[in-house]
Design a protein around this nucleic acid. Structure first.
Length: 724
DNA sequence: ATAGGGTTAG
C-alpha cells in the first residue's frame, strides 16, 4: 500500500514516475471515483487527480492503455470539468490513428469553448483528415462557436491541401468578419492557401498588405512563386527578404534551391550552394536533397554526387534524387550502379526508386538489367502501383521484349489499368512494327470506356506512321475532333511524318500550311526527313531554311540536309553545310552501337579500333560478306554519304557500327539466343538488308533498336516490312 | 493550452 502524499509537492514528485502512477491509480485507495466529487476537499483533490491523469496520459503509449485511462476518467466526471485533460486525450487518440474515438469524446464534452473545437480540428489535421477538418469547421460556425486565430490556420491548411480555392476564399471572408486578418499566423496560412490553390496573385495581395512579416511569411510567399513556376519572382523575393534583414533557414533554402532548379542556371546553383555552406544548412536532409536535385537539373551531376557523398544522413529521397539526377542527365548506367550500391548498404528502395531505376533500364535498353530489376521488385514485395506497372511494360517494350510487355499489359492489376497503360502499349506495338495490333488496342480501349487523351493520339498516330497506315491515320486525326481532343503541334508533327514517309509530300506541306499555330521544329524536321527518304532536294531546302531559323544549333537537321545533298551528289552544298556547322562549333554525333554480353556493355563506333576484339570482329565481317554475296547480297553504296571512290565506299560499309556490333553478337552469343543491338542513330539501309540476309543464312534472330524504332530480323525479313 | 513555410518520381 502506498503512502498518501502529504503535500502537492510530494504528489508531483511521485507522479514523475509513470510506473508509480499506475500503481497509485490501480490501488484505488486514495482516489476512489465517487468520493472525489463529494468530499469537502473536492477542489484540491480534483486538481491533484487532474495532475495524476495528465502525467498518466503523457506517458501512455498504446491505444489500449489510452482507452483504459479514458474510461476511468469518464466515471470520475473529471472529463467534463477539465478541458485540458480532454484535449490531451483527443490529441493522443489522433496520434494513435483513431480520430473516431477522439470525436466521440469531443461530442460528449463539446460546448461553446473554442479551445476544445480547435483541439478536435487539430486532431483531424494531425492525421491529414481534411474533409473532417472542414466538416467540423462548418459545424462550428453553424453552432455559433467563434473560430479564432488558432482555428483558421488549420482550416486554411485543409482547403489548401484540397486545392479548394472557392471555399478557401470563403474562409478568408470569415477571417475578415471575425477580425483576425492581421494575425501573422493567419496571414501566412492565407498566403499558403492561395499558393496551393494556384492563385499567387491573391496570395501576393495578402502578403503585400501585411504590416509585419517574419521568416515564415516570407518563405510562404517565396514558395508560392516557386510552386507556380515563377522562379525569377521567387528569387527576387528571396533577395528582398535578405535586404530586410532576415537570415534564411533551411526551409527557405529548399524553396530557393527548387527555384534555381527550375531555371537550370549552374552559376546561381553554385551561389545557393555557397550560401548553404556558409550558414551550415547542409546538416538538414531536406536541404541536401534539394541541392542534389538542383545540381542535377542544372546539368551538374558531379556536383550533385559530391553533395550526396558529403551528406551525413541520407533518406529515401536522397537516393531517389541522385538516381533520377543521373537518369535526367542521360547517365542511366551510373544510376544503376548507385542502385546496386544501395542494396549493398541495405537501403530499402521504395516504389519510387523502382520507378526511376526501371526507366533507366528503358533508357539504356538493357533487357538483362531490366529483367534483373523486375525480379528484384517481385522479390522485395514492394507495393506495385499502376504507375510502376506501366513503367515496367514500357521498359520491356523499350528493351525489345515485346512479348513480356504484352504479358504485363494483359496481367495488369484488376481494375487499375488506366489510359497510360493503353498509351504505353499502343506505342510499344507501333515501334515494334505491329500497326494492326496498335489499331486494335486503340478501338478496344474505347469499347472498354477508356477515353483516349492527347498522348493516346501521339501514340496511335506515330504507330500509323511507323507502319505506313496512312488512311487509318488520317481517319484517326479526324476522330480527334469528334472526341474533342485538340490538335496539338505534336499531332501535326506525327501526321507530317506519316504522310511524308508514305510519299504524300504535297499533302504534308498543305497540312503544315493549315496549322493554326506556328509549326515547330519537329514538324519541319518530319518534313525534312521525308525529303531525305524521297530525294526531294528543293522541298528539303525549304524545310531546312525554317529549321535553321528555329533551331540554329541542332546538329541533326544539318546532317539530314547534308545527306539530302549528298544523295544527289551536290558535294559543293554538302561542303557549305559542313563549313556552317564547323563555324558554329557543331559536330556530327558519332554513330554508336552497343550490345550486351556477359553482363558487360560492348560499344562500337564506325570503323572502331578500340574494342579489344576488333581484329577478330573485322575478320569475321569480311568472311561473312563473302558468304552473303554468294547468297545475292549487293552492297548498297548509296548509303555512304561521302565523296569517295566506290571501292572505298564498299569497304567502309563493312565497318558500320551496327554491323560490328551484330557480328560481335554472332561470334559470342550462343546459337538460338537473339542478338540485340541498340544504335544511337537511324539504322543504315545497307546494314538493314545485310541483317535480313544474315538472319536467314545464319538462322539468327536479330533485334536492332535505332533512334526511332525496333527492327526484328528473322528468316530473311524485318518486322518493319522495309518501311522505316 | 492550441497555429503558419520544405525535397524526389509522374
Amino acid at each position: 500500500m502506498l503512502q498518501r502524499p502529504s503535500s502537492l509537492q510530494d504528489l508531483k514528485v511521485l507522479f514523475r514516475s509513470s510506473h508509480l502512477c499506475h500503481r497509485y491509480l490501480s490501488s484505488n485507495t486514495y482516489f476512489p471515483c465517487k468520493p472525489i466529487m463529494t468530499t469537502t476537499a473536492t477542489r484540491s483533490t480534483a486538481f491533484e487527480s487532474g495532475c495524476l491523469y495528465s502525467h498518466l496520459l503523457h506517458s501512455c503509449n498504446t491505444l489500449n492503455s489510452l482507452k483504459q485511462i479514458h474510461s476511468s476518467l469518464s466515471t470520475t466526471g473529471l472529463i467534463k470539468q477539465n478541458p485540458h485533460l480532454s484535449a490531451q486525450i483527443i490529441i493522443k487518440y489522433s496520434k494513435f490513428g483513431d480520430p473516431g474515438s477522439a470525436r466521440s469524446l469531443f461530442d460528449v464534452i463539446r460546448g461553446s469553448n473554442s479551445f476544445l473545437w480547435n483541439t478536435m480540428i487539430r486532431a483531424y489535421a494531425l492525421g491529414n483528415h481534411s474533409i473532417e477538418t472542414i466538416e467540423l469547421y462548418l459545424l462550428m460556425r453553424k453552432t455559433g462557436v467563434g473560430p479564432n486565430n488558432y482555428t483558421f490556420p488549420f482550416v486554411l491548411n485543409a482547403y489548401a491541401s484540397r486545392s479548394s480555392l472557392f471555399e478557401g476564399k470563403m474562409v478568408h471572408g470569415d477571417v475578415i468578419r471575425t477580425g483576425f486578418e492581421s494575425d501573422m499566423f493567419v496571414e501566412a496560412a492565407l498566403v499558403d492557401m492561395y499558393a496551393k490553390c494556384g492563385d499567387t496573385d491573391d496570395g501576393w495581395r495578402v502578403f503585400d498588405k501585411m504590416s509585419k512579416r517574419d521568416l515564415v511569411s516570407w518563405t510562404a510567399m517565396i514558395t508560392a512563386y516557386e510552386q507556380s513556376e515563377k522562379a525569377e519572382e521567387s528569387l527576387v523575393l528571396f533577395q528582398k527578404m535578405q535586404q530586410e534583414g532576415f537570415l534564411a533557414d533551411s526551409v527557405a533554402m529548399v524553396s530557393v534551391a527548387s527555384a534555381v532548379s527550375q531555371l537550370g542556371d549552374v552559376r546561381r546553383a553554385q551561389s545557393v550552394h555557397g550560401y548553404i555552406i556558409r550558414n551550415g544548412f547542409l546538416e538538414d536532409v531536406f536541404v541536401g536533397n534539394s541541392i542534389i536535385a538542383m545540381y542535377a537539373k542544372c546539368g551538374n551531376v558531379e556536383g550533385a554526387r559530391l553533395i550526396f557523398d558529403l551528406m551525413k544522413e541520407r533518406d529515401g529521397i536522397s537516393w531517389n534524387s541522385m538516381l533520377s539526377g543521373y537518369t535526367q542527365n542521360g547517365q542511366a548506367s551510373e544510376a544503376l550502379l548507385l542502385f546496386d550500391q544501395m542494396q549493398v548498404l541495405g537501403v530499402k528502395p521504395s516504389p519510387v526508386t523502382a520507378l526511376i531505376v526501371v526507366s533507366s533500364c528503358a533508357y539504356l535498353g538493357s533487357l538483362h538489367l531490366g529483367k534483373k530489376i523486375h525480379g528484384f521488385i517481385i522479390n522485395s514485395k514492394m507495393g506495385v502501383d499502376i504507375t510502376l506497372w506501366n513503367a515496367i511494360i514500357d521498359m520491356y517494350a523499350k528493351c525489345g521484349d515485346l512479348d513480356s510487355a504484352i504479358q504485363m499489359f494483359n496481367n495488369s492489376p484488376q481494375g487499375e489499368r488506366n489510359v497510360i497503360s493503353w498509351n504505353v502499349m499502343i506505342t510499344a506495338y507501333g515501334v515494334h512494327g505491329c500497326g494492326q495490333e496498335a489499331l486494335k488496342l486503340y478501338s478496344q480501349m474505347q469499347e472498354q470506356g477508356i477515353e483516349p487523351n492527347h498522348i493516346t493520339f501521339t501514340s496511335i498516330l506515330s504507330a500509323c506512321s511507323h507502319n505506313g497506315l496512312v488512311s487509318e491515320g488520317r481517319k484517326i486525326f479526324e476522330d480527334m475532333r469528334k472526341l474533342s481532343v485538340k490538335h496539338e503541334v505534336k499531332h501535326y508533327a506525327c501526321m507530317v511524318d506519316m504522310l511524308g514517309r508514305a510519299g504524300f509530300l504535297d499533302e504534308a506541306l498543305d497540312l503544315i500550311m493549315e496549322m493554326p499555330s506556328e509549326p515547330s521544329d519537329e514538324v519541319w524536321g518530319a518534313l525534312l526527313l521525308a525529303c531525305r527518304i524521297h530525294g526531294k532536294t528543293e522541298l528539303g531546302e525549304f524545310a531546312a531554311k525554317n529549321l535553321f531559323h528555329l533551331e540554329p544549333d541542332h546538329t541533326g537537321y544539318y546532317v539530314l540536309m547534308s545527306n539530302i545533298y549528298a544523295a544527289s551528289s551536290r558535294w559543293q552544298d554538302v561542303g557549305k553545310l559542313r563549313q556552317d556547322m564547323k563555324s558554329k562549333g557543331l559536330k556530327k554525333p558519332a554513330a554508336l552501337s552497343v550490345i550486351e554480353f556477359g553482363g558487360v556493355v560492348h560499344g562500337f563506333h564506325t570503323a572502331d579500333n578500340s574494342h579489344p576484339q576488333c581484329r577478330e570482329v573485322y575478320r569475321k565481317v569480311e568472311k561473312m560478306v563473302v558468304e552473303m554475296k554468294m547468297a545475292g547480297y549487293v552492297p548498297d553504296i548509296s548509303c555512304v554519304l561521302h565523296d569517295m571512290e566506290e571501292e572505298d565506299k564498299e569497304h567502309i560499309l563493312n565497318y558500320h557500327s551496327e554491323k560490328l556490333a551484330v557480328v560481335f553478337g554472332i561470334m559470342k552469343i550462343e546459337h538460338g539466343m537473339p542478338i540485340q543491338v541498340t544504335k544511337n542513330l537511324r539504322i543504315c539501309n545497307d546494314c538493314h538488308s545485310a541483317f535480313k540476309l544474315i538472319s536467314y543464312i545464319y538462322q539468327r534472330k536479330i533485334v536492332v533498336r535505332d533512334a526511332n524504332r525496333f527492327h526484328h530480323f528473322e528468316g530473311g525479313s524485318c518486322s518493319c516490312k522495309d518501311y522505316w
